[in-house]
């Protein structure tokens, strides 16, 4: 048994009001509780909240097209009055059969969704333009990854990097002392650990075509390298080449599983 504070409001509104109260009375501090009401407001009004993670402000695929049930949030003006579950597949319909609530037939609010999509696309252009010259190209990559600790946290949290033992953590990639001796001989110096850029470009080659722009790799990076922005950008250009959107279709084979003779025959000519 415990005391219950009953606020006669729909749950989002109630929570928002309660959080506002806590903030006003200085009962809590911290950005998170301040951001939460703004977060719901922005969702309702199809706006881009600047304090989101960079790759989230630039995410165009915010409607989970493959899901069995889609909870309508983005651009849903009725967010505070009702909770709409769109039964997207027969599995979803089956799950919802007999559940309390009224059943109607509705489409997701296309106008609002495309408004948000447009805004996000603009953000995406801005975001990519901001990293293009600064962070890509050999000089840019060297600078960008200069503070990298080689912790491989970005790989560890990436949903697409699934290998139990990453090649870049394996013995194959460990240098013998003789490697460093010859580096000393030839260049007068060598960075230890070696192969930082090699790891990042290698990881990029392995998985960028399936990068889902989720932002985890940036979130985990202890030295704030915009890993997700870069992977997402390189990923997108690769995905365009293959006319492929990762995670869109269960039946569509991943480009790395598909062999097409004479694919990109023009390359290298």
């Amino acid at each position: 048994m415990s005391d219950v504070l009953k606020i006669k409001k729909p749950v989002e509104e109630g929570i928002t009001e309660f959080l506002k109260y806590l903030l006003e009375k200085n009962k809590v501090n911290g950005k998170f509780s301040q951001l939460l009401p703004k977060y719901w407001e922005a969702a309702k009004n199809s706006e881009v909240l600047p304090s989101l993670r960079p790759t989230c402000t630039a995410c165009e695929h915010f409607v989970p097209a493959l899901a069995d049930i889609i909870v309508s949030v983005a651009g849903n003006k009725n967010l505070t009055e009702e909770c709409s579950l769109h039964l997207n597949t027969s599995k979803g319909e089956e799950l919802a059969q007999g559940a309390p609530g009224n059943k109607t037939t509705e489409k997701l609010n296309d106008r609002e969704l495309s408004k948000l999509k447009e805004l996000r696309q603009k953000e995406r252009e801005k975001l990519f333009a901001s990293v293009k010259d600064k962070n890509l190209g050999l000089a840019g990559m060297v600078k960008t990854f200069a503070p990298c600790l080689s912790c491989h946290g970005c790989r560890q949290v990436c949903p697409i990097c699934f290998c139990t033992l990453c090649d870049f953590d394996s013995k194959t990639q460990e240098d013998k002392p003789s490697h460093y001796e010859s580096e000393l001989q030839q260049k007068g110096g060598a960075r230890i650990p070696s192969g930082t850029l090699y790891f990042h470009t290698g990881r990029m080659i392995h998985m960028a075509v399936s990068c889902v722009n989720c932002g985890m790799c940036s979130d985990v990076c202890p030295v704030d390298i915009p890993v997700a922005t870069l992977f997402s950008m390189v990923g997108e250009s690769l995905q365009k080449l293959f006319d492929y959107l990762p995670g869109k279709d269960l039946e569509e084979p991943a480009p790395c599983e598909t062999f097409i003779e004479n694919e990109f025959a023009g390359l290298g000519e």
């Binding site: 600078k143 200069a146 503070p147 580096e183 000393l184 007068g188 110096g189 060598a190 960075r191």
Partner: peptide, 30 residues
């Protein structure tokens, strides 16, 4: 590392590389 705010471990014999070396940097990177 020139033009960045970061320190890297370097094995060096070229004394020119000592220019930017720091026996006691403000941070521990690796």
């Amino acid at each position: 590392v020139p033009e960045t705010e970061s320190y890297a471990w370097v094995l060096l014999k070229d004394t020119a590389l000592l220019e930017n070396a720091d026996p006691l940097p403000p941070v521990m990177t690796i």
